[in-house]
Simulated assay, not measured.
Amino acid sequence: MHLSSFDFELPLSKIAQRPRYPRGSSLLLRIKETGLLDLKLTHIASNIGEGDVLVFNNTRVLKARLFGRCGNRAIELLMHKKMDKGLWHALVKPGKAVFKNSKIIISDTFVCTVVDKLSDGTVILSLSSEEEEDFASIEKYGHMPLPPYMKRNDDKQDQIDYQTVFATDYGSVASPTAGLHFNEDILEDLKKRGVEIEFVTLHVGLGTFKPIKSQDIRDHVMHEEWACIDERTSRRLNNAKRAGKNIVAVGTTSLRVLESAIDGLGMIQPMSGTTDIFITPGYQFNSVNMLLTNFHLPKSTLFVLVCAFAGERLMKQAYEHAIKGPYQFYSYGDACLIDLVKSG
């Protein structure tokens, strides 16, 4: 499968720099084998049946971008993953400015020391601060890790906009953006209509957004990301499956958790561990019937995934429709609700 098959032209004007306000007013493109339908996110309840299940990713985005100095050089850190108390894996820019034992001064009371510099240019950092918890130090001095295609600095509004209303445990360096469309009123309306709401966790790391560099996409290797489904949630999802109800993954991260937890009989098992699942066309989905997701980058693992979910022809048709229409793309963009199209 050649990478060029998943490319398309996207005008810069289609890349959302801010979400639609208020939260919940996004546009929604309904994508089915029988055609496309222009809707609004507020119409989602009429497209989900009583007893169907929406599965959200409840990870919380960490203000993982830190700015400091190493000697006379300005340094930017992206705190990627906590390895142990006071010990973190991070990306650093410029990488040539730091070495083993370099000290990066974030503030008078917050210092990151380079314990090791890895072959890929990332670093292992030892944190020293006045805060007892690492997360507290990073949250105090950090900035929201907006994607690089947003050509601006983060601000206070992003601390609201780039976090879902149901976020719980810190762990992500990017938002599970499909969940950003939902406010408390929409969630409550869904519940009143008999739609079940469940939560899984995938801490979004480098794996989700790592660009595909190999021309044959099958050669691409994902970074591992931590994921969790508890026993209660897996049991309720399996009960819904047995009852013939639709399982709707809200976001590609939720979908990847569910598919990582499928056993040989097509049932969703509890899990707590890492996943590096990379879904490409030809993959047989076993956990869900529908996917709600944003509009993704060309030649990305996420666009490859939606092509696997509904077929390349249909998704390219849908994206062409969205580009010609009023839809906005990427993290702060609009959403689409896609039916699973069985391959073969």
Rank of each mutant, 00 (worst) to 15 (best):
M1I: 04
E9Y: 15
A16M: 03
R20L: 11
R20F: 11
R20T: 11
Y21Q: 14
P22K: 15
S26A: 12
L27D: 06
L29F: 05
K32P: 03
E33N: 12
E33P: 14
E33M: 11
T34C: 06
L37N: 02
A45I: 15
I48L: 00
I48D: 00
E50N: 07
E50S: 08
E50F: 11
L54M: 09
F56D: 11
F56E: 13
N58D: 15
N58G: 15
V61H: 10
L62D: 04
K63P: 12
N72Q: 10
A74H: 06
I75Y: 06
L77E: 02
K85A: 10
G86Y: 00
W88D: 00
H89P: 03
H89F: 04
H89S: 08
K93D: 09
P94N: 01
P94V: 02
P94W: 03
G95M: 08
A97W: 12
F99A: 13
N101R: 15
K103D: 05
I104D: 01
I106K: 06
T109K: 10
F110V: 15
F110T: 13
T113C: 13
L118I: 07
D120G: 12
G121R: 02
T122G: 14
V123L: 11
V123F: 08
S129K: 07
E130M: 14
D134E: 02
D134G: 01
F135N: 11
E139S: 08
H143V: 14
M144H: 11
M144D: 05
P145Y: 10
P147Q: 08
P148Q: 10
M150S: 15
M150G: 11
K151L: 09
N153I: 13
D154V: 09
D158C: 03
D158W: 07
G171P: 02
S172E: 04
S175R: 13
P176M: 07
L180E: 10
N183E: 12
D185H: 11
E188R: 15
E188T: 14
D189F: 14
L190G: 06
K192P: 00
K192N: 08
G194N: 04
E196H: 14
F199S: 14
T201S: 03
L206M: 15
K210N: 06
I212N: 09
S214Q: 05
S214C: 06
S214Y: 06
I217A: 05
I217Y: 04
V221E: 13
V221F: 15
H223C: 13
E224P: 13
N238T: 02
N238S: 01
N246I: 11
V248R: 00
V250D: 03
G251K: 10
S254A: 11
S254I: 11
E259H: 05
E259Y: 04
S260L: 08
A261M: 02
D263P: 07
D263M: 09
G266V: 04
I268E: 01
G273N: 02
T274S: 09
D276K: 14
I277L: 06
G282Q: 08
F285H: 03
M290H: 14
M290R: 15
L291D: 00
F295H: 00
A308V: 09
A308Q: 02
E312Q: 13
L314I: 08
Y319P: 00
E320M: 14
A322V: 01
I323S: 00
P326Q: 03
P326D: 00
Y327K: 03
F329I: 10
Y330H: 13
S331P: 02
I338A: 00
S343E: 10
